[in-house]
Design a protein around this nucleic acid. Structure first.
Length: 493
RNA sequence: GCCCCCAUCGUCUAGUGGCCCAGGACGAAGCCCUCUCAAGGCUUAAACCGGGAUUCGAAUUCCCGUGGGGGCACCA
């Protein structure tokens, strides 16, 4: 690991919901910056006006903050290398495009979209690779300049060398050698005066002093182009790291944000904005995405500081990774068990409130040890602890009937239990459990039957945290009331 | 069609020529614990895509297949 501080950037387009892949790039960027004492930058790549979605930029910033990936520089925090929104940098790209035209590495192109489309069709018909046919590449520079001066519409294309090969170095894959003739004369500057990614990203990465470019492997195809652009400017290249892509859970095909069938189903989502609602924690999500594409040996439950400590771009993996929601569950549940009681209480409180429950903070803190290891997602607190905040519970009558018994028999047990509990001077679980256990012994019933009735009676549900501890928190009065109510239900069945 | 990338248990991965009859984690199965559900403990099943080559020796190097993925826009 280099000691030199790294400047990294995540550069999403505000074209839709922020998803897992963006979050992972940001995570790695963040980790590398922290590890080396450098800076992590957010840059918004909004040069395609037609695809920009209102609110998407905010969603990205909110998502990064939710994940705890606070950027040192960005549109809303500023920084010495701004502006951080590409539409605010038009002039910068324009002058750089001119530089390239002037040094012969780029040229104006006057071809109409119509003609281009026709050329493409013909090439396809001839089973050729669709590519720009180079009409304007061969224009006399003076004539081209004249036409530009005359106000003719034009774009600027990169003049890709026709001969030879380009060797581009990826940190994970080594040298990638491509024949130059395979690479098109890509558009650098569009009719609307805005740059394409190819120009904008290269210019910005250089101008912003980015030392390590981490990006998706979908950029591998244009990687040689990018390297040529950087070299045409005479700039030093950053370290290029092309990350593996995320595959659908099936492993068939790239994970797409347009694929709604898996975007949000069964309580899972690929969008960061949904994670909180679904009860996932930043710790769980970060841990999950961190390990898809990063080989950490052993101990793979890591918090942010442990990740920083261990992170290295050398241990990133180049192969595609299928996402696995079961693992998200695992990491989420594991991190929940690691939170302090106060922290966990604060985190689950909103879910109770969302459910319309009146949360008592004392009770909230008391139930934490009872429900903590049962939570996979934070919103599971409702299923395991909602009844603590209800005045009454309404058990399903059938659930009150113990296994192997009928309603009348179950009612008798409930009655006896009621009697035992009301005769007991104390009510804590230490006071209540022994006499009830003794009753189980002498009655010849099993604990499941007796405790099961009480569980359903007092909590209103078949599955709950440990019975006696729960009853203690519910309180003597409420418990007796609820058991009384259960007896009534059983007697009228 | 053309170009590029990738290839270890179902999944995420460790492994950089002998330490590997391949290790960990998730998931699965079983047992223990147990008032339900969990958690926890123990155990089991489960992989080096195929074929050549190099080498005393290959999961690890090279070549060829095959499979998967990505790209071939005035989108990023």
């Amino acid at each position: 690991m280099s000691i030199k501080p790294a400047r990294t950037r995540v550069a999403p387009s505000p074209t839709g919901h922020m998803h897992l892949a963006t979050a992972r790039v940001a995570l790695y960027d963040y980790l590398l910056a922290k590890k080396t004492g450098g800076q992590f930058v957010l840059r918004i790549e909004d040069t395609d006006l037609s695809r920009t979605v209102p609110g998407a930029e905010q969603e990205i910033m909110d998502g990064l903050r939710w994940l705890g990936l606070n950027y040192d520089e960005g549109p809303d925090v500023g920084g010495a290398y701004g502006p951080y929104r590409q539409t605010d940098r038009r002039d910068i790209y324009l002058s750089h495009a001119r530089t390239l035209v002037n040094n012969g590495c780029a040229y104006p192109c006057f071809c109409t979209p119509d003609r281009l489309e026709k050329v493409r069709q013909e090439q396809m018909k001839r089973k050729e690779n669709p590519h720009y046919d180079g009409v304007c590449r061969n224009l006399d520079p003076d004539e081209a300049a004249r036409r530009v001066a005359n106000g003719e519409k034009y774009i600027i294309r990169f003049k890709m060398p026709k001969e030879g090969t380009t060797t581009a170095h990826d940190h994970l894959r080594g040298d990638i050698v491509t024949e130059n003739k395979q690479i098109n004369d890509y558009v650098l500057l569009k009719t609307d005066g805005l740059p394409t990614y190819h120009l904008a990203a290269m210019v910005d990465d250089h101008e912003m002093g980015i030392t390590h470019v981490l990006r998706g492997s979908e950029w591998l195809g244009t990687f040689p182009l990018h390297v040529n652009i950087v070299r045409a400017f005479g700039w030093e290249e950053p370290t290029w790291v092309h990350l593996s892509v995320f595959l659908k859970p099936s492993g068939k095909g790239k994970l797409s944000k347009r694929d709604t069938s898996i975007a949000m189903k069964d309580g899972y989502s690929v969008f960061i904005k949904d994670m909180n609602d679904l009860g996932f924690t930043p710790e769980g999500v970060n841990n999950w995405i961190a390990l898809m594409g990063w080989g950490v040996a052993e101990d793979d439950v890591l918090d942010s500081s442990q990740m920083v400590e261990r992170f290295s771009i050398d241990s990133l993996t180049p192969s595609p990774a299928a996402i696995n929601f079961q693992k998200l569950d695992h990491f989420n549940a594991t991190h929940i068990r690691l939170f302090t009681s106060e922290d966990l209480a604060a985190r689950i409180k909103p879910y109770f409130i969302r459910e319309g429950l009146d949360v008592n903070d004392d009770i909230l803190l008391k139930i934490i040890p009872l429900i903590r290891e049962r939570l996979v997602t934070l919103d599971d607190c409702i299923a395991f602890g909602g009844f603590f905040f209800k005045d009454e519970v309404s058990p399903n009558p059938e659930d009150l009937v113990a296994k192997g018994l009928d309603a009348a028999g179950s009612a008798q047990i409930a009655q006896r239990a009621y009697q035992i509990l009301s005769e007991q001077p104390g009510f804590g679980h230490e006071a209540s459990e022994p006499p009830l256990r003794a009753y189980v012994e002498e009655s010849g019933l099993n604990a499941n039957q007796v405790f099961g009735i009480l569980r359903v009676a007092t909590t209103g549900q078949k599955v709950s945290p440990p019975l006696f501890e729960s009853m203690e928190i519910i309180g003597r009065e409420k418990c007796l009331q609820r058991i009384q109510n259960a007896i009534r239900i059983l007697q009228t069945m």
